[in-house]
């Protein structure tokens, strides 16, 4: 699970470069699509971070620090 989430992090990094929307000025959800995409990107990041802290939390560090 941990490896899959790290791969997802790498994929998300690549998806940050939304070349396919570079010249698209249409509107989605009331905002220019280039802006909406990155707002949704932030929400996707939030979701991935939630999965990381749930399934890939480095709890061994916590024990080591005691």
């Amino acid at each position: 699970m941990r490896v899959l989430l790290y791969i997802a992090l790498g994929v998300l990094y690549l998806l940050h470069n939304d070349l396919w929307l570079w010249h698209d000025g249409s509107r989605v959800l009331g905002l220019p699509v280039g802006l909406t995409y990155h707002v949704l990107f932030c929400l996707a990041t939030c979701l991935l971070m939630a999965l990381l802290v749930k399934y890939a939390w480095p709890s061994e560090l916590s024990a080591d620090s005691e």
Binding site: H16, H38, F41, C42, T45
Partner: peptide, 8 residues
């Protein structure tokens, strides 16, 4: 450039 990259 500055916000969503930082958010990740």
């Amino acid at each position: 450039l500055m916000a969503s990259s930082s958010a990740l």
